[in-house]
């Protein structure tokens, strides 16, 4: 009984609710990755099922908590980071997962998102990025590319998009990873690491909206081209990619540069080794910002740095003050300071 956490299967984490996303929606794959990751997280961190809380805001992705058989809270638009923060501070032993989308986290909830990251509260934020507003049927989002034609931008958007990784690192984020909805294995693998990271973990999942923005990520999601257009980063490994594993990244001046191994005098020795644990955000920022066609799109864990967390600091400070406190009860409090008898 005590070792329940050893024996979960994905099935244990699926709720009895009918999943109502559109057929073909990328969210289905992400749900599969999550229920696949959770038994592994449980095993590694010794978490029983009741320790998990899934919190969301509003949007297609935010229906997620109904579909996992854990504690769940479907909040209001943009506020999931604030709600998760409250859950975690109230009970730091819980494993808190926030499900959010590009509109929920980066538009209406931008403020809460950056402040959760700045505080480094130990929650895992899964950011489903489909570059469109799905639930309201097809308006542009803060990650839609400049010029995107949508229902509210019939002549193309005239605003610059956010790059979630840049925002996360800019807000002093300590953990940022990126995955693709169709790569369930990689997504699940990243989620286990996100759960193990003590502090705010942001996982951007490039997700396809089959109805309103179909194919937005096809240029890298298609099996055909994927290996040439993405690089999967792993800590301590060379930054090599390509179908033939013959391309790599080097530092040229102050920028990253793609080179072909064996051409122009470059050998494997010249290729950068990924250091996700480096506190300096410089290279992480460049990796997070790489865009096709100039660069491969970086997947995997880009940044994974240890630092103190908000929830630990709150708990430690309270315990420390309580240890030396003269006031131990409300009666003590009421009788503290200047008093007099009548």
């Amino acid at each position: 009984m005590e070792e329940q956490y050893m024996n979960y299967t994905p099935q244990d984490f699926k709720s009895d609710q009918e999943v109502r996303w559109c057929p073909g929606c990328g969210d289905h794959a992400i749900l599969n990755a999550v229920v696949k990751a959770l038994p592994e997280v449980s095993k590694q961190l010794k978490y029983n099922l009741e320790r998990y809380v899934f919190v969301s805001g509003i949007g297609c992705s935010s229906r997620f908590p109904y579909y996992v058989n854990t504690f769940g809270f479907h909040g209001i638009h943009g506020r999931a980071s604030a709600i998760s923060t409250g859950v975690k501070v109230a009970n730091p032993t819980l494993s808190v997962w926030q499900i959010t989308g590009d509109g929920d986290a980066l538009a209406i909830g931008g403020n809460h998102f950056i402040h959760a990251i700045r505080r480094n509260i130990d929650i895992n934020i899964l950011l489903f990025n489909n570059q469109i507003y799905g639930l309201t049927k097809g308006q542009y989002s803060p990650t839609s590319p400049l010029g995107a034609i949508t229902k509210t931008s019939p002549y193309g958007t005239v605003e610059h998009p956010f790059r979630p990784g840049e925002l996360v690192i800019g807000a002093q984020g300590k953990f940022f990873a990126r995955s693709l909805d169709v790569d369930v294995k990689l997504t699940a693998e990243i989620m286990v690491e996100a759960a193990k990271h003590d502090g705010t973990s942001v996982v951007e999942i490039l997700q396809n909206c089959v109805i309103f923005n179909d194919g937005a990520h096809d240029y890298i999601a298609d099996r055909e081209n994927r290996d040439d257009r993405v690089i999967i980063l792993r800590h301590g490994e060379k930054m090599v990619f390509g179908k033939n594993r013959d391309k790599g990244l080097i530092l040229s001046g102050l920028s990253l540069k793609v080179v072909t191994i064996g051409q122009g005098g470059f050998t494997l020795d010249d290729i950068l080794v990924h250091d996700a644990y480096n506190p300096n955000p410089g290279v992480h920022m460049m990796l997070a910002n790489m865009e096709y066609p100039d660069y491969p799109v970086a997947l995997g864990i880009i940044r994974n740095v240890k630092d103190s967390t908000y929830d630990d600091n709150v708990r430690d400070q309270v315990l420390e003050v309580m240890k030396n406190a003269k006031i131990k009860s409300v009666d003590d409090l009421l009788n503290s300071g200047d008093t007099w008898e009548v």
Binding site: V53, V55, F73, G75, I76, R79, S81, A82, I83, S84, T85, G86, V87, K88, V89, A90, N91, L94, N111, H112, H115, V314, Q317, V318, V321, M322, A325, K326, I327, K328, S329, V330, L333
Partner: peptide
């Protein structure tokens, strides 16, 4: 009043103030 175990969170805005409280209430 941390001496009495009170947890205060100075939120980033009024909305976060109440939303963190709702999260904390859910968590007991």
């Amino acid at each position: 009043r941390k001496d009495l175990g009170v947890k205060t969170l100075q939120a980033e805005d009024e909305i976060a103030g109440i939303c963190t409280a709702i999260g904390a209430s859910f968590a007991g």
